[in-house]
């Protein structure tokens, strides 16, 4: 009789525990003899990187107007399309989607700098539970507004005021997903952060190359995201101890949202 009772209580406690485990989004395990994915992102299109005009409205104090004009410049090279002579695309986010199990994500903090009225870096990766360090290197007001991009909407993550030079704010990364950054005071400013729970995200280099390591064997979906191209997704199978090749070529451009704000 006692046994039945103990058994019932244990089962009763286990059922909710199991249902919580089902909700857990990412499980950290040791990965030995995992596989990798490697490839190059190119484009079949001839693209031209636009020059963005910078308009600074005059302020009451002409000195302040002068400081802002000098810091931000008259025009800025947009830096959307950084394409090599052999059509390889830089700054593509390569994201392995829906990973349930794998290595622990790094604990590295991400520094975002407001420098000469641009966000640096333009494209970066942050990890949930690490920190964002937002800096202002300019002698003028910036605000850094982070928002996670939902299907066709934006949800605020943080909107931080950075009114003076050399200011630094540290904030915990609580939200996963593709995040865009904007500054309401300077409509041309933008940047993109992929906030991840797992380490299987990277960015292409100047030769369009990328590499992802230590994945557990299995089938994966890889998303290739770039602000100026229609995104692509590809399926790939990863085998133990091997590197799978996965190249992509962008064939459609897309107008980045910030150009519509100018």
């Amino acid at each position: 009789m006692k046994k039945i009772m103990v058994f019932t209580v244990v089962v009763a406690l286990l059922i909710p525990a199991l249902s919580f485990a089902r909700k857990a989004k990412y499980e950290v395990v040791e990965v030995n003899n995992g596989g990798g994915i490697q490839g190059t992102v190119k484009t079949s299109l001839k693209v031209k990187d636009p020059v963005v005009p910078i308009n600074i409205q005059p302020k009451e104090d002409p000195k302040e107007t002068e400081i802002e004009r000098k810091t931000c410049g008259k025009t800025q090279q947009a830096g959307i399309y950084i394409v090599s002579p052999s059509n390889e695309v830089k700054n593509v986010l390569v994201i392995v989607e829906g990973v349930k199990k794998g290595k622990a994500a790094p604990k590295t903090d991400l520094t975002i700098n407001n420098n000469k009225c641009r966000f640096e870096p333009l494209v970066s990766i942050s990890y949930v539970k690490s920190n964002y360090i937002v800096k202002n290197s300019d002698p003028l007001f910036h605000n850094t507004s982070l928002g996670v991009l939902l299907k066709d909407k934006r949800r605020a993550v943080y909107n931080l005021a950075l009114p003076y030079q050399n200011q630094e704010i540290k904030k915990r990364n609580r939200v996963a997903g593709l995040i865009d950054l904007k500054c309401d005071a300077h409509s041309w400013m933008r940047a993109y952060v992929y906030s991840s729970r797992h380490p299987y995200v990277t960015i292409t280099d100047a030769n369009g190359n990328y590499e992802l390591k230590d994945l557990l064997p299995g089938k994966y979906t890889v998303r290739f995201w770039h602000e100026g191209f229609q995104e692509e997704t590809k399926e790939v199978e990863v085998k133990a101890g091997k590197v799978s090749k996965l190249d992509v070529s962008f064939s459609k451009t897309r107008k980045p949202d910030f150009l519509g704000r100018l």
Binding site: N143, T144, A156, Q167
Partner: peptide
């Protein structure tokens, strides 16, 4: 949130 008015919690 959702507008241009930022938080001054860390700056003031």
């Amino acid at each position: 949130d959702g507008t241009g008015m930022p938080s001054y919690e860390d700056s003031l």
